[in-house]
Amino acid sequence: MEASITLKKVGKLVGDKTILAGLTFGIEKGTIVALVGDNDAGKSTMLRLIAGLENPNYGAVFLHGLDTEKRRMETRQTVAFIPHDIDLDPWLTLEQNIQFDAKLYGEHQDKIQSRINEYSHALGMGDFLYSMAGRVPQGIQKKAMIIRALAHDPTILIMDEPTAFMDAESRRLTWNLMRKLRGDKTIVYSSQFLPEIESANDRIMVIHNGSVLLDGSLDKLLESTLEYHQFAIEFEELSDELYNSLCGVSTIVNPTKVGNTFHFYGRSRKVFFEVLNACTGALMKDLSIEKLSLQDLLDSAFAQKGMDG
């Protein structure tokens, strides 16, 4: 499948701190890719690099095979970026903001107008389109930013928290539109809303400390967790001695202590009984067993160690 976006050994530094560390991957044309990870993991920086808003310190970003630094004008024509924060001119109406931006891309008025009509209908903008940007709720402004990004008909859409500030209905309309655009446009986005990611993606990339920790479809990523369970045992008192003894059970993964609760991961329920054996005599108050979900993939400590850690 043809790659829309290619990163080759891309690195970004801020001072001495490495924000992105030698990333190399490709994103197929027409797919929806979700970036997930902790705050400060490097998601926004990665999106800004792909959008051409920043340049990498080393390596290169290619859009449709063109280097974004060397073929700046051509690549910018093909990409649109929606930042997390509102960046509309508050003294123009939402429609004027969209029109102005599309005109900077050299689009004809009739095409701009027809796209505004189409996307504002899809996102349920109504009469808000003709209100001053500074006077409408931020969720509406964010929808206008999506229309603005689509008004010059980019083939690549980069979105940083696209549904931030939106209510549930607006989020639903936004993702309906994105699913409709899938195939025609390559969409890369970051989000903290897990249900959103679970419902709209062809591929998920888990970013941690500037590196891609996990990469694949939701099913593929969860496949490796299917046999795993997350266990929690709350003790009357979890002493350091008991905690160390429990950590010594060879079959448990990523044990942690939160107050008097001992958390760990295990591949089967058998592991649970091994732990129970190890804590004979200690008074237990509560216990729980849960199957792993996408949330657990985002648990950076867990993800960093890996399922087989």
């Binding site: 700046r72 910018r76 960046d87 001119d89 508050p90 903001n97 900077l104 050299g106």
Partner: peptide, 13 residues
């Protein structure tokens, strides 16, 4: 303040 200059600088001009 409201970063509206940024989208202008992203345009192919």
């Amino acid at each position: 303040h409201n970063k509206a200059l940024i989208p202008m600088t992203l345009a192919p001009i």
